[in-house]
Amino acid sequence: MHVRPVPQTSTPAPADAISGSAWVTSLAVPEGPSRTRVDRVQFAPGARTRWHRHPLGQVLVITDGTGYVQRRGGPAQLVRPGDTVRVAAGEWHWHGATDTSAMTHLAIEEIPGDGGETEIGDPVAGGEPAPVPAEPVTRTLVLEQRLPAPRLVDLVEVRRITIAPGYGAGLHVHNGPVFGSIETGSAVYQIEGEPETLLRPGDVFHEPEATRIARFDAREDGVTFLAQFPVGPGETPRLDLIEEEGR
């Protein structure tokens, strides 16, 4: 038995296999007699695979967000966390996020011993059957954050903030809690003393009040996000930069 920590890095999905932005984290690769591969795939809103098929089929386990799956000749189906999709061997299909929600799934497949590979087909065209939600309104809880103490709030500011590629906010604190949602790009987020987190489109975050935020650094693609600042009577949302020791 071997326990492998969840990798902290992922790679962009191949551009010839995906329309839009998606990232792949390899969780298990074939070893010894086992031919099983397990990947975690994170789709940005609107991203989807091209039509494709696997020699021995595939199993998808939806872990986060909302998306669609469709086999050729059948209707597109809405999938949510906990849903499992079994794709038959050689079955043409596609899967991806909805236009408004990111989606993450585990992809589990058996790799043929003869080296056969996944066959990639055409992009999903606009003329394909339109995915129709099973329900007219869907609601997904993306963040539930309890504050350390009751707080009187009489104003909430919502700002759209863009940070240029490679630029960081610097060590800072806020005078109130901040709740955010990544729209485009990506950023490395870290509360001082805690592990770093890579934020991508659809991810949400919470910066606690009066807590030192060590990193909110845009990566090479920059980052744009919505930030909500709830404050009390007479307060104005404020970010205070902290001069690091030794500088």
Rank of each mutant, 00 (worst) to 15 (best):
Met1Phe: 04
Met1Ser: 13
Met1Tyr: 04
Pro7Val: 10
Thr9Ile: 14
Ala13Asn: 10
Asp16His: 04
Val29Ala: 15
Gly32Met: 12
Ser34Trp: 04
Arg35Ser: 10
Arg37Val: 03
Val41Trp: 04
Gln42Pro: 03
Phe43Ser: 00
Arg48Glu: 03
Arg48Asn: 05
Thr49Phe: 09
Arg53Asp: 04
Arg53Pro: 02
Pro55Phe: 04
Leu56His: 14
Gln58Ile: 02
Val59Arg: 13
Val59Gly: 01
Val61Cys: 07
Asp64Trp: 05
Asp64Ala: 12
Asp64Ser: 12
Tyr68Gln: 06
Val69Gln: 08
Gln70Lys: 05
Arg71Asn: 07
Arg72Ser: 03
Arg72Leu: 08
Gly74Lys: 08
Gln77Tyr: 01
Pro81Thr: 07
Asp83Lys: 08
Asp83Trp: 03
Val85Trp: 03
Arg86Gln: 10
Val87Trp: 01
Val87Gly: 03
Trp92Arg: 05
His93Lys: 01
His95Val: 05
His95Glu: 13
His95Tyr: 12
Thr98Asp: 08
Thr98Leu: 09
Thr100His: 08
Thr100Val: 08
Ala102Ile: 12
Met103Arg: 06
His105Gly: 10
Leu106Trp: 01
Ala107Glu: 07
Ile108Trp: 00
Asp114Gly: 14
Gly115Met: 11
Thr118Asp: 06
Gly127Asp: 15
Pro131Leu: 11
Glu135Pro: 03
Glu135Phe: 11
Glu135Cys: 07
Glu135Ala: 14
Pro136Asn: 09
Pro136Trp: 14
Arg139Thr: 12
Arg139Ile: 11
Thr140Asp: 13
Val142Phe: 06
Gln145Asp: 06
Arg146Gly: 08
Pro148Trp: 11
Leu152Tyr: 15
Leu152Lys: 15
Val153Phe: 12
Asp154Met: 06
Asp154Arg: 05
Leu155Pro: 00
Val156Pro: 09
Ala164Tyr: 06
Ala169Asn: 03
Gly170Gln: 10
Leu171Val: 09
His174Gln: 12
Asn175Arg: 04
Val178Ile: 11
Phe179His: 09
Gly180Thr: 01
Ile182Arg: 07
Glu183Phe: 11
Gly185Tyr: 09
Val188Lys: 04
Val188Trp: 03
Pro195Cys: 06
His206Glu: 07
Glu207Asn: 14
Pro208Asn: 06
Glu209Arg: 01
Arg212Asp: 02
Ile213Trp: 14
Asp217Tyr: 01
Arg219Met: 14
Arg219Pro: 02
Glu220Pro: 05
Val223Gly: 07
Val223Asn: 06
Leu226Arg: 14
Val231Phe: 13
Gly234Leu: 03
Thr236Ala: 09
Arg238Gln: 13
Ile242Ala: 13
Glu245Arg: 02
